[in-house]
Amino acid sequence: MTQNAARTLPALPVAAIVATVLMWASSFVLIRYSAGELSPGPLALLRLLAGTVTLSALLLWVRRGNLHLPSRPALGLTALFGVIWFALYTVVFNLAGHYIDAGTIAMVVNLAPLMVGVGAVVFFKESFSSRLFAGMVVSLCGIGLITVAGSTGQLALAGLGIALLAAFLYAGGMLIQKLALRHTDPLTATWLACAAGTIALLPFLGATWDQLQTTSTPVILGAVYMGIGPTALGFWFWGYAMNHFPTGKVAACTLAVPAVVVVMSWLTLGEVPPLLGIIGGAVTLTGVAIAQLRRPARHVPQARPVR
């Protein structure tokens, strides 16, 4: 009985990762679809409002009305994580959708796991491995190919720069989230971060109201879905997975997102990145994968404790 429970336990974190990858992939397509009707700020505010409401309901349901706020340092970390990842990243992410296709955005943004590895070296004093260096070199070559594709007019170089900025914000948010999760649980951290991000975007409230008067129902529903799915459930599931697996392994799972985005974008929007951009994206993600590789630890038999 105990052995069966131990074998099935990882199924929930794995399912959380799969669901998050699918939901996050859909958000790349939806921001591209919404670009013609909603500007980046209002789209982000609608998304975070829906996310905050959903997370508040989830928190009340899971905690049965008993909310336990973390300490002040943890509150500061979650607020910072929310402003960087939920607010700034979401606005910049939406802005990229006004310039380049969803697949290319996904390939560039998914440099974030590599940036997380570099950030762990700089801020957490982890060792700078040869695999991380090799991954950086390969990924830079891939970004070079994507840039060449942009210089031919098939992609907008401004959009590539914006997508790179989104990747930096993504990585920064991920690193701070890991610190925040040392002091509180994933659901509480996600709720507080989403609320902080929403507050940071309140200056867009007037523009949001004005644009809603002319925005189509499908676009509004898409923004609400992104708040409920990719934001509320996605970040909650992501935090849950990070509490069960090493950060690098969880971050590496996002490498599947660009492939899913390209397929979704092709089926729904009829968009496919240029061939050179796809090749560059594949090279970039290969570099990220190299950087995330870990040598299997040697198994050292240990004496069983006497009980």
Rank of each mutant, 00 (worst) to 15 (best):
P10Y: 05
I17C: 12
R307N: 13
S130R: 15
A57I: 13
A171D: 02
I228E: 01
G135E: 07
N110V: 00
L45P: 01
R182P: 00
T8N: 15
L155T: 04
V148F: 10
G103W: 05
T54A: 10
V62T: 15
S265T: 00
G159V: 04
V263T: 05
K125N: 13
T8V: 13
T217V: 14
P40N: 05
V92K: 01
I162Q: 11
P113L: 05
P113M: 07
S265G: 13
L30M: 15
V263D: 02
A149I: 00
A207D: 15
A6R: 14
E37Q: 15
S34D: 06
F237P: 03
L145T: 00
T247M: 15
S34W: 05
V53E: 05
P274G: 09
Q213C: 00
A25P: 02
P246L: 00
L60E: 01
L30Y: 11
F124T: 00
G248A: 15
V219M: 07
V283M: 01
T8A: 14
L179N: 11
G173A: 02
G280K: 06
G161D: 05
V91W: 11
L155F: 10
R294G: 05
H299T: 10
D185H: 12
G82Y: 09
A193D: 03
A35G: 06
W209M: 15
T268D: 03
Q177N: 15
V138Q: 05
A35Y: 06
G119A: 06
G76R: 01
A166N: 02
L95Q: 14
W238P: 02
P218S: 01
M174Q: 15
L155W: 10
I146Q: 09
N66V: 11
T20Y: 08
F128M: 14
L201N: 09
I220W: 04
T208V: 06
G287E: 12
G103R: 07
T214G: 08
T214I: 09
V108Q: 01
V118F: 15
L181S: 08
I228W: 11
A289R: 13
I176S: 00
Y89S: 10
A87P: 11
L164V: 08
I176C: 01
P230L: 02
G135S: 07
S26R: 10
A251Y: 01
G227I: 09
V62M: 11
I17Y: 03
Q292L: 11
L293K: 12
G153Q: 07
R47G: 01
N66S: 12
H244S: 13
T90K: 02
G119M: 06
V121K: 10
M107N: 10
V300F: 08
A196N: 08
T208M: 15
P186D: 04
L187N: 02
W238Q: 12
F93D: 04
S139T: 03
T90H: 14
G227D: 07
L192P: 05
L48R: 04
T247I: 13
Q3P: 08
L169K: 04
V121M: 08
A11I: 14
L285M: 12
I278R: 09
W191D: 00
G153N: 06
L293Q: 14
T152P: 01
V138S: 05
V224T: 12
Y225V: 01
